[in-house]
């Protein structure tokens, strides 16, 4: 057998698997929007929203309710990840990695701060004070932040071609949500804090990816991601929820009312999609790099609109055709890149 040929094949296989994981991430992320949307109308969250909105206004209520939903989402993510790690036999490695705070788990806890309170909360702030389309578009910018950071910080190679692919996918996403974006901003009563929220989302997820890439140097992705969600659970349940309760919001009252079969079921599905989307995202980073992994992950915008159309019957704007085409061009630019460039992801 030819050595050079086998080498090339092995290497192409690695890159292909990396893209496969990033694509899984995008699909699962898109699917998350189904449970992530319907959970809002269920008890106790609808009542919680109404109660807080009556005293503090809609925008504020959306954020406070979002904290509780996100906290429960983080809990069910851990459940889903226990299944994932159980099937892959990673519990031993998880214990070993958790104990190595300084070299390993520190990075994942740090990633959880940027990905959790900063990005997710920012995203909800953008949603609450500007609108859903703006929140979606703002979040799409995160691969730019992620790939620039990864390249400046630890020299991840990001080719012009890969960057072009990322830019195409971002413009594709903007086009998909474009109509809604114009309506929202044109409405005029936009509060500046909404824009800050959008910025928090883009910067938060970008930084998270770069930090995760750093931690994943010397840890396994499945394990690293589980530690990241352990961190996020601590942030929500030990810090955010109690603080909001002390400030007088009815956090615990509604948290205790969540044990209702349909609400739990929807939260479990939110956990499966969110947890698996994140773990596949992390799995792609060591194989194709943070920039490409995030770029392909960005296809979630397209998948979300498609799944929402399929399951909710919401007919998307015609701009989805143009935006979807741009996403497709961007992805093929990345998929078809000569992979010999990717022998190692970082410069010497």
């Amino acid at each position: 057998m030819d050595l050079q040929l086998l080498k090339k094949q092995e290497h192409q296989r690695r890159v292909r698997k990396g893209f496969m994981w990033a694509l899984f991430c995008a699909i699962l992320w898109g699917l998350w929007y189904i449970p992530g949307t319907v959970v809002w109308v269920l008890n106790p969250f609808d009542e919680m929203y109404a109660e807080i909105a009556a005293t503090n206004g809609d925008g504020m209520s959306l954020i406070i309710t979002a904290v509780l939903i996100t906290a429960f989402n983080a809990l069910t993510v851990i459940l889903a990840l226990m299944v994932w790690n159980g099937v892959l036999g990673k519990f031993g490695e998880m214990k070993r990695t958790l104990k190595e705070f300084n070299p390993c788990s520190k990075w994942f806890f740090l990633a959880s701060i940027f990905g959790g309170p900063m990005a997710i909360l920012g995203s909800f702030i953008a949603m609450g004070f500007v609108g859903g389309a703006f929140a979606a578009v703002a979040a799409l910018m995160y691969p730019v932040v992620g790939s620039i950071l990864a390249s400046k910080w630890y020299g991840e190679k990001i080719s012009k071609r890969a960057f072009a692919g990322i830019v195409f996918i971002i413009f594709g996403g903007i086009t998909i949500f474009g109509g809604g974006l114009l309506t929202e901003i044109g409405a005029g009563n936009v509060v500046w804090i909404g824009y800050i929220g959008g910025l928090m989302a883009a910067v938060g997820w970008g930084i998270e990816g770069a930090i995760a890439g750093k931690g994943l140097d010397i840890a396994e992705p499945d394990v690293g991601l589980t530690l990241r969600f352990l961190g996020e659970n601590i942030i929500w349940w030990v810090i955010a929820v109690p603080i909001l309760a002390i400030l007088g919001f009815p956090m615990f009252k509604y948290a205790l009312m969540v044990f209702e079969p349909l609400t739990m079921l929807v939260l479990v599905f939110a956990g499966i999609t969110f947890g698996f989307c994140y773990v596949t995202w992390y799995k792609s980073f060591p194989l194709i790099g943070v920039g490409r992994g995030q770029g392909i992950g960005n296809l979630y915008g397209l998948f979300a609109v498609v799944f929402i159309a399929l399951f909710f019957g919401d007919i998307p704007d015609w701009t989805i055709l143009v935006g979807g085409a741009l996403c497709l061009i961007g992805s093929s630019i990345m998929f078809s890149e000569d992979t010999s460039q990717l022998e190692s992801l970082r410069g010497e």
Binding site: L28, V83, W84, V87, D222, F269, I272, F276, K283
Partner: peptide, 12 residues
């Protein structure tokens, strides 16, 4: 969701 999650896990 279950089908895609199981396929992902099987791949992993």
């Amino acid at each position: 969701i279950l089908v895609i999650a199981i396929v992902a896990l099987w791949q992993a």
